[in-house]
Nucleic acid binder design. Structure first.
Lengths: 196, 196, 196, 196
DNA sequence: AATGAATGAGTTTTCATTCAT
DNA sequence: TATGAATGAAAACTCATTCAT
């Protein structure tokens, strides 16, 4: 590296700092709008909320998926990193799996429209789906395998299938007293357990 | 019945016959398009597939919900009527519930986009949702109650919640080898069973 | 008349009678609908009100203007025929003109949307306009000329102009307490009178 | 004022200049189309005439009424402001009223379709009607009252009624040699004058 | 780099008019 | 002759996306 090279993290003239700040504003606005109007909300609405032009959003996030992924990256990462930790600390692999599933469920339930978008085949959410799968399926697989190995759950259910099942159960507006996703996810996990 | 009496399937005047035939064509086309493009497919696409003008669709089915309900009415009715029959003939209430759930699941799995539409809050599908709930929840409730009474499943899960859980699990394109809704529905039912 | 000859007025097998009766029903229905929804009301609405198919309306009245002319023919004729009578019986030509204008105004005011249609250049009302002009302008001209000749009104205003002015003043929904077409028509006539 | 100060007509940033220019183009195009096809002309026609996309029109004028009001605002304002001036300068209140009515009539006569739209109860022209009434009726009232007070015209006719009468007389395509709105408006005013 | 004006494809909906039965 | 099903042109309106400033 020459003396004039600049690492991305240390911008020289402040321009980059502006852009970064802008990006944060954007993500916050998008997150807020996603909660209100779902992940398919008009770009214009997000731009308005962020107080920027729509062109700015397109510059930072060329596709809608880019934006959605960026919005939820932190939480996906946190969820991914929690897997090994839980496995190391929980009383049993199944207990770890339960706790991880709780984490994952909480995440989906609190992000209105996210679960829906994850399985949508319209709107260019493929990248979002892919990201979730790539990042979380391995984590879930580890917990699942361990639980099978410990004899706590029956084999035959793959991590992708389980996660998508959980994801689907979380679809729909939350706070519906007649439909509690967490209860159903719990039933699903019970169904996985060994009869004994 | 006199010799001149005519069954409802053999209308007397010509016009009606045409219209009825057309209505059948329409329903078939709509069903096909729903599988391909989901229940939110453009009206124009259905008209094109049926080989009729868009006006014709609006004549027969003024709102999208009318069309969707019409397309699925037969199967919803069949499913509703199967409930009591299964309960009367199966080895146990739980067995009847299982079989009924299989029926319901098959229905949803084979109708791409239907499960999705059922929980959508956009597109004027309220009527569809309402129809499903009104017609099927009581049936499901009967099977569920009987299974609780027989001690085969644990209490605490309502028929609406169960049906919506099943519905949600069926969301997504079918024939995905990595995600089998039927397996997950089966897990859900296992989760309902008494530990013993 | 032989037993087998059939004058148009005495149809043998009722077909013609049916058609005539139908035509009357149609005219009555159209008149009623014109009052409610204006002269541009959907053909379908008229057909429904008459209890016939739309095709029947098109058979009898190929264009909308045909229908409108037919609906109002009686009254136009009555108005036309009243002209000479009034002129012969009134105290003066101006008095006759006044009475005739009252007749004409009443006609327009009570036919919602008619005055509007008369000057509309859309909707194919040309034939209607033409019919009114051909039939009534000569009548109005006679009254106007006589009034000029008697020295009661100033010359310079033509019958077409006057009639169209009156027609225009009658445009708009009636029963508006803030706008009384008759008062304004009266002002117009006053304006025509000789200063003396 | 410094040399760098900018009048409102010379906005600082580029974009705004374009948009403003565009808005002018739009208003001109709309005015032209209104003359040709009336105030109910399809949005698309105006867009085509202006050489812009339809979206552009919706951006500038969300509703049709917004567009129509914008097109005629200048002239309505001029007309409104002329009232007091005329009253102050004319030889008599009636003379002022005459001149103002001429102004108003000229305005309507030269805007084909406007008079028609003003009394239409379809197409969302309420706002237009309201704007005219709110802005001009008080002005007309002042002139009318003064003319009554000076004994030049008979009382009993309200400003709204007079204006709407004039408006109605101006309905129809102009340049019809057989129908001169100005002549009829003049007759109407004569009708208002005191016999003496 | 940011802006937001402009674009126009896509969808819904209404009705006059035709035409097979 | 009557019917009304079918047609499709027309018009409004929304938004993702591009691009001049």
């Amino acid at each position: 590296m020459s003396a004039t090279s600049q690492s991305p993290e240390v911008p020289a003239r402040g321009k980059r700092a502006d852009a970064l700040r802008n990006q944060q504003t954007l993500l916050a606005a998008a997150a807020a709008v996603f909660v209100t109007s779902g992940v398919e909300a008009p770009i214009r609405e997000i731009a308005a909320r962020a107080g920027v032009g729509i062109g700015t959003i397109y510059r930072h996030f060329p596709t809608r998926a880019d934006l959605v992924v960026a919005v939820y990256r932190h939480q996906v990462e946190a969820c991914a990193e929690a897997g090994p930790t839980l496995l190391a600390n929980a009383a049993s692999p199944l207990a770890a799996l339960r706790q991880w599933v709780d984490l994952f469920t909480d995440f989906l339930v609190t992000k209105h429209g996210l679960a829906n978008a994850l399985q949508s085949d319209t709107g260019g959410f493929d990248a979002l789906h892919t990201y979730f799968v790539d990042r979380l399926v391995p984590v879930c697989a580890q917990l699942l395998d361990a639980s099978v190995d410990s004899g706590e759950i029956v084999p035959g259910t793959g991590p992708y299938e389980l996660m998508r099942g959980i994801g689907n159960l979380c679809i729909g507006r939350n706070n519906d007293p007649a439909y509690d996703p967490r209860r159903l996810v719990d039933l699903l996990l019970r169904g996985l357990q060994q009869p004994r």
